[in-house]
Computed example of a mutant assay.
Amino acid sequence: MGYVCELGSGYSIYLDNQGTQTMITTVMSSPSQQQQTSSSISTGVWTAPPKIFRTPMGAAIEIFTAQGEVFISVQGNATSVTSETSFIGSAQQMQMQQVASAPSFSTPMEPMSPMLPMQPLKMGNMQMNMNPMEMRMGSVATSTSMSTSSSSTRRFCSQCGKAIEPSDRFCSNCGHHLA
């Protein structure tokens, strides 16, 4: 069972005791974005509900354990253990509510669907096709053949990169055996 404290202006702190670890999740949200940061601090098992105080720099949390009290400073998304206790007298204690767990805002993405083959692109009197590559604007057409034949394909040595002929068994530059 965890606790949440709404500090206002879209800023919330969630606390949860998981064994000897205290999980602290800060959530800052605005209409256009949301940031969530979680950190874990070894505090020991809680013996009483935590207290949270508003401070000029953010918040301070007081955790009660069998080993004593642990004080945690929270400034924005940064958390740290502190020995500072002077805030208790002058700081405002905030109300906390019990919650089942800290929120999780990450939703799994749907798998990407395969890309559809390119269709002819038409804009007004212009049309483009990709295979074979051709472009038509009104009555003017241009096309490029993308066909390749084995006789015009250049080969290169995988060892040194020098151009080789299809009939070569060894590279004339480095002597590498060509497969």
Rank of each mutant, 00 (worst) to 15 (best):
R54F: 08
I52R: 14
Q95Y: 05
S83F: 07
T107E: 13
V70E: 12
A163Q: 11
M133A: 06
R154E: 11
G124E: 01
Q159V: 13
M118H: 08
S9P: 03
E134I: 14
Q97N: 12
S86M: 04
Q75R: 13
E6A: 15
K51Y: 15
M57P: 08
S147W: 12
M128R: 15
A179F: 10
E69Q: 12
S139H: 07
H177S: 12
S106W: 02
Q67E: 05
D16F: 15
Q34T: 11
C157F: 09
S172P: 13
A48W: 14
A91P: 05
S39M: 10
M115K: 05
A78F: 06
N125M: 07
K51R: 07
M130I: 04
M133N: 04
S38F: 12
Q33N: 08
I24V: 09
M133E: 11
R154I: 15
L15H: 00
G138A: 04
F64R: 14
K51S: 02
L178F: 13
G58S: 02
K122M: 04
A60F: 12
A102Q: 06
S143R: 05
Q33C: 05
H176W: 04
S158N: 11
A66L: 04
G124T: 00
M146Q: 11
S73M: 09
R169L: 02
V27D: 06
N173T: 10
S139F: 14
A59S: 01
M28F: 06
Y3V: 01
F53W: 04
G68P: 11
F64L: 03
S29P: 07
E62Q: 05
T55P: 01
T37C: 09
V45N: 13
G89A: 10
S101Q: 10
P56I: 11
F156V: 10
Q75F: 10
D16H: 14
L7C: 02
I164V: 15
M94K: 05
P111W: 08
A66I: 07
S167K: 09
Q98N: 08
Q67W: 11
C174Q: 06
Q35G: 14
G124Y: 00
G124Q: 04
S40F: 02
P120G: 00
S90R: 07
P111I: 07
S42Y: 09
Q21V: 03
N131P: 03
Y3H: 01
T79P: 01
F64A: 10
G2R: 03
T65S: 01
R54Y: 03
A102T: 06
S158P: 10
E165A: 11
R136S: 03
Q92H: 07
V74T: 09
C174I: 03
I164D: 03
N17T: 08
G161Y: 06
R136N: 04
D16R: 15
A141F: 13
S152G: 02
T47M: 01
M23L: 12
Q92P: 02
Q21H: 15
A102N: 06
F156L: 05
T85K: 06
N173F: 12
M109G: 04
S113A: 13
T85I: 15
S83Q: 12
A100G: 11
